[in-house]
Nucleic acid binder design. Structure first.
Lengths: 205, 205, 205, 205
DNA sequence: TTATAAGCGAGACGGTACGTCTCGTCTTGGT
DNA sequence: ACCAAGACGAGACGTACCGTCTCGCTTATAA
């Protein structure tokens, strides 16, 4: 009996959508994910609660979209086109650059708070996790695959290496330190990681 | 005016403590961390809420202790003594063994649910995260340091390598796949990881 | 700045008006006044909410008009002309007839539900109450005044009696039993009331 | 499966109960019944909403009890014992007194607002109505029965009169004017009512 | 051997947030 | 211009838990 209640997205208020994104990101940054409430987001965005519940199924979904939107905006500002890992011919140098940038990003509060919140929610909530991986993480990881394939073609990575696994030698440790806060995330750490891992992938003598 | 309220732990009810551990782990496994409530734990354990609030500061703390206790029990059953990574002289084989075991553990539901819950909470809540790392994670990681040092002494790992970073080449990717569920965690994956990483740490020709 | 917003009643949809009346009466009858909502009336009438808000200031106003319309229709069906209390020369018999008819009406669900709802709203909301009295109640009461005046002229009611008060000896108790449901409303009850009250108004010996 | 959840009334907070009564009566007086909300009562009483929902099933029930309590307190202040209609031997004079007092009460705002609210709710909600009648109205009406019986025994009311109906000649019209606000409620009105009605009940010459 | 004081199960309390419902207003597209 | 439809800001609904606070009731020293 209960209808599906599918709202008409063509009549959706753009103004409200943006206000909700901003409020959600701000609150997660200021108070943390646990203390961010849908009521709080609605109040801060100057929006009725129903406007949130109409368009999103959960707090995590709101934040995911807000974060996605943030990333999109940042990408556009950085210069429209699709991003790729640079290819100077020197994999190690190229990856060092990327990992250092990633370290910087992870150390910046504007990224840290919402990304942490989303990751944590995804760890515990498979639907959110799947979305997070599909929409945010996997596209990033594909960039590594592309660059590593080029390196393989150039003879800097040995034949037979599974590149989807190889890339995790770089991103896995980084993510681990970031999420668990075991030890500080520094450029030196990124460099060491690249050093050890690239060496591991190099053709055997 | 407010008293320090330090309860007398010598009069603590062992029965209640155990019941709370069991209830907490069961509920996290069945309903997930988010839907596990202190009231629910108390009800399931047949315990007053105050008995939980008297001894633990938060839901996460209860679960952390419960999980620690579980690990302790498992260790005792597995054979009293302190665990270490075996040293057959072949680092690669030894680590393959350990990583395969870790994969199996991560794939077992009894471990998965509470470990995920705790990790997620730690990601977002620095206090919990610090406790988790200190009590659970770091001791495990030290085992890798020990084994890798032996390998270094045996000339299987090159001089100058920072072992605290090196170990993350093994554990980081594993944890990443487990937490984010990007791709399945298999023995083959563990083997490949060990292969690439050990190669990366090996002395240069 | 806020316009007076006087809609052009000449372009009003008669179809919608009727549908709203019917929906309002039906819903009040089925679900009760409290559970009847403007959204519900609009949905049932197949009408936009604004069409109700455009023409009526409140739920009570809709129901009042709907009920008035119902009464009008009933009156027309019963035979066009203005109704009056019959005058056979025997006040007691005439009033007995009227009060019995009133009892029957009060016991009929089609009348009971909306009349109750309106009365209750009027009790608590003076504007609605005033409308209700002016449009529905007072015209009815005037019929009593007319008939009692005839009786007074015929010497069946003593001089000096305030007829506006006198009529309340008949209608007051009836209304009271109906509204509060203290005891059942029967023809015998109506007869007794008429007996006692007419006696009270009769010329002293 | 859903438990009955019967709270332990011996542990109930008297302080909260009183605060809720006061808040409910104050709000109904100030804002009217319709604009009085449970949230509002809770906030004004400095009480959690659940404390209201734990002990009362509805807003109407809260107000009914509050009003009952008010009446009880008033009765105690007026002089502990059970109240009865005075018996000076002159029914007319005695009833005049009582009806004038009732008129005064109905004209006092402290009584008017909650009594109206409750009556209106009772008109539309049979459960509330039954409670209202049983707890408040019927006891009052019994006083009339008692006094009228004495009058009957004294020969001032004729044999055969149904006293339960007779009393409604006094209270019905009064209640009607009060609830519907048709015409002002004055002492003169009360006197006229008593005059006409007592005459109607008197033995026939 | 009793008293006395802690921990205990229970659950009422003042609160916050949930997700739903309805309000009355506003906007869009169709007739 | 009115209409059906329905998104919107607002806020109350009744529920679920939070963390604190009594209640009596064991239960285990210390007088």
């Amino acid at each position: 009996m209960t209808e599906a209640r599918t709202p008409d997205s063509s009549r959706r208020s753009e103004r409200s959508r943006r206000a909700i994104y901003e409020a959600a990101l701000a609150l997660v940054g200021e108070a943390g994910y646990g203390k961010t409430t849908i009521e709080g987001i609605a109040a801060r965005a100057g929006v009725g609660k129903q406007t949130i519940y109409r368009w999103w199924p959960s707090k995590a979904a709101v934040l995911l979209e807000a974060f996605l939107d943030l990333a999109e905006q940042a990408a556009e500002e950085a210069g429209g086109g699709e991003y790729e890992i640079p290819d100077t011919g020197d994999v190690e140098a190229d990856l060092r650059l990327v990992l250092r940038a990633t370290v910087d990003e992870m150390n910046s509060p504007a990224y840290d708070a919402p990304a942490r919140a989303l990751t944590a929610e995804g760890v515990v909530n498979p639907e959110v996790g799947a979305q997070f991986v599909e929409k945010l993480l996997e596209p990033q990881l594909q960039l590594y695959v592309t660059r590593l394939r080029a390196a393989q073609d150039a003879g800097q990575v040995r034949r037979g290496i599974d590149l989807r696994i190889a890339l995790e030698l770089f991103t896995g440790p980084l993510a681990h330190r970031w999420l668990l806060r075991t030890l500080p995330l520094t450029h030196d750490y990124a460099d060491a990681l690249v050093d050890y891992a690239v060496n591991g992938l190099a053709p055997r003598p």
